Every structure is written in C-alpha cells, then in structure tokens.
Simulated assay, not measured.
Amino acid sequence: MFDTMTFTKTLGALCGSLLIFLLAGWAAESLYSIGGGHGEHAEQAYVIDTGEAEGAGEEVAEVAFADVLAAADPEKGAKVFGKCKACHKLEDGANSTGPFLYGVVGREVESAAGFGYSGKLKAAADVWTPENLNHFLENPKGFAPGTAMSFAGLKKIEDRADVIAYLDSLDN
C-alpha cells in the first residue's frame, strides 16, 4: 500500500508545511515588532483613562473591631453561621467534624471535651476572646498555621462580628 515514493512525498509535504509555518511566524514577528527585534515593544499610542490612578492614593479607613462588634446583629450572625453548620454543632458537648461552639466566646482554646485537636490552635492563642475569634474566622490557616480546619474564612468584618455576637448570645 505504501511504497517508498508515497512515504517520501508525505514526509516532504510535512516538512514543507512546517517551513511555511515557520516563515509565516517570522514574517508576522517582523511586521508587528519594532525594528524586527525580539522582545522590543513600543509605548502605547493611546491610553484609556479608567480612573484607577485617581483612586490609588485613597486609603480605606480601618475600623476598630470593638466598634464593629458593638454594632453586631446576632440575628444576622445566625444566618452567617449557616456556613459553619456543616462541621460545628451548637449543643453543649456535641462534637462533630469540628468541636462544639456552645460557650466558645471566652472559653480556653482546645478545651472542648471529647474532641481531638491538632495542637496548632493552642500555640496561636490561650482564650477565645472576640479579637482572637475575629482573626481566626478571617483566615484560619493564617491565624494558626497547620490547623486542621479547612474553612477559607469570612472576609467581611461585619460577618465575623455578627457570628461572634451570635455565638456569645447562645450561653447568655
């Protein structure tokens, strides 16, 4: 079926196609670059103003967490806690994938009875104060590197304050 001449023609066609492809790439590079050099680029002739340069100098005012916590809404915190329900229970002593969170505000770190902790939290804090909970809920892996908690965190400070207020309201 295949003889030497057919094989030679096929190989020649492939090599010719490759040569044309390489020459077309070289021509396009020469046409669209300055002076035909590699890696040289001209400045943009027209720059679209998006307004980013104006806002670059403005800084976002940092709000004290105590102020946000004072204005926190436990009812909103109950809704945000829905993200935590998969791993945590609110009943006293009812551990799940994570430890129970009843009375967690003001409780010693790694003190939920019957839960096997990784030991990384105790190195980060001694007591679950609202400030420690705020930092932990913002970025668990950043607060306690090596912790087994795989939750990404709550990015909004208001959400964190609402959840902490909700958890604090559970045990009166």
Rank of each mutant, 00 (worst) to 15 (best):
G98S: 04
E110K: 06
T129A: 11
W128Q: 05
K122L: 15
S111P: 08
S96L: 08
R107A: 15
V127H: 07
G93Q: 07
E110N: 04
G114N: 07
L121S: 06
G114M: 09
V104R: 01
P130K: 08
G114C: 07
D126L: 14
A125T: 11
D92Q: 11
N134K: 10
G103T: 07
F100N: 13
E131H: 12
T129H: 10
A123W: 10
P130M: 13
N134Y: 11
G116S: 08
F100Y: 12
L90W: 10
L90T: 15
C84R: 02
C84H: 06
A86M: 09
N132E: 15
L101D: 02
A113N: 10
G116T: 14
N134P: 05
K120R: 11
F100R: 01
E131R: 12
G106S: 07
E91V: 15
A113M: 08
V127T: 15
S96W: 09
A94S: 10
E110G: 03
E110S: 06
L133G: 03
K122G: 07
K122V: 13
K85L: 11
G116A: 13
A125N: 11
K122R: 14
G93C: 00
K85F: 12
G103R: 02
Y102I: 05
G106D: 07
H135E: 15
A112F: 05
L133P: 05
F100K: 00
G119C: 04
A86L: 12
R107D: 12
L121K: 06
G103N: 12
N134A: 13
T97P: 00
V105T: 10
G116W: 01
G119L: 00
K120S: 13
E108V: 02
Y102S: 10
R107G: 05
E108G: 13
A113Q: 14
E91G: 09
E131N: 14
S118N: 08
G119R: 03
A124C: 09
G119H: 04
C87A: 10
P99S: 06
G98L: 02
E110C: 04
V127E: 11
P130C: 14
N95D: 14
V109E: 00
Y102D: 09
G114D: 10
P99A: 08
V109T: 01
R107S: 12
V109I: 12
V104D: 01
E91R: 09
V104E: 03
L90S: 11
N95K: 11
G103F: 04
K120P: 00
K85N: 09
A113E: 14
A112C: 12
K85W: 05
G93F: 04
G119M: 00
W128R: 02
G119I: 00
L133N: 05
D126H: 10
T129D: 12
C84Q: 02
G116P: 05
